[in-house]
Design a protein around this nucleic acid. Structure first.
Lengths: 121, 121
DNA sequence: CTAAAGTATGGAGTATGCTCCAACGTCAAC
DNA sequence: GTTGACGTTGGAGCATACTCCATACTTTAG
């Protein structure tokens, strides 16, 4: 597919798509005779994944490393598996921290609600 | 305490501390007669919390909203509680997404390990 | 053939979150 | 009273992640 279709299907602007390509996040981009970019079907999922990970707070560099490892079955399985394990440990640590934050928020919410009931009437 | 002590105790540079103050993240900063900043003991925890939340991918704007709500027992309990509830829902959603990412990583790790065993020998 | 729509490139500009620096005021010690 | 450590401000500069633009080429429709 061409860039406008990928733009439409992912909701990501063409400028950003070209930027991602330049940053090595989209590696399977071909060119047709007229020098137009030609994206494989798969690109839709790849872009979606980049956006999801980015929304979760990963930097483009981290995302590139992760996507590269996902492709690494053609390169080096053992190393790819190790990257996955490391990334996953990071994600798990982040989940635990977020759970602590959530608990704190819950506690504060309860405190403020109690305070509202006491003062409010 | 003065800025150098807060810098030492939090590991956050004075430039950043002043920047955070300007952005409304540190509201309880006094001035002594000589115009030096005077931080309450509490500032250490506040700065640590900012850093933790930032590390988890929150923007300074989000963090400010959250810290403001934490202080809101002196302002508006009911509204503060509502902010907490909203923020917490966001955090919970993020946790679920990260769990999905973790599951994906685990699955890919397993696949690559299997692939390594098959090809490797 | 021409106009409009689509694409390409390089480079400038923007927002966020710092980071560094120059110029200057304050204070304790010698 | 001067040196040196510590503090102040305003503004410039930087990295990341876009976003916009001018210019130019290609393709499609009329």
């Amino acid at each position: 597919m061409r860039i406008s279709e990928l733009e439409r299907r992912t909701g990501v602007s063409r400028d950003t798509l070209r930027y991602y390509e330049k940053q090595g996040l989209l590696r399977e981009v071909g060119r047709s005779g007229n020098n137009y970019r030609e994206y494989p079907e798969q690109a839709v999922d790849r872009v979606s994944m980049v956006r999801q990970l980015k929304g979760l707070g990963f930097s483009l560099t981290e995302i590139r490393e992760l996507l590269d490892a996902l492709r690494s079955d053609r390169i080096n399985c053992r190393e790819g598996a190790a990257v996955m394990a490391r990334k996953r440990a990071g994600v798990e640590a982040r989940i635990r921290e977020l759970q602590a934050v959530s608990a704190l928020l819950e506690q504060q919410q309860a405190r403020l609600e109690a305070s509202a009931r006491a003062h409010g009437l």
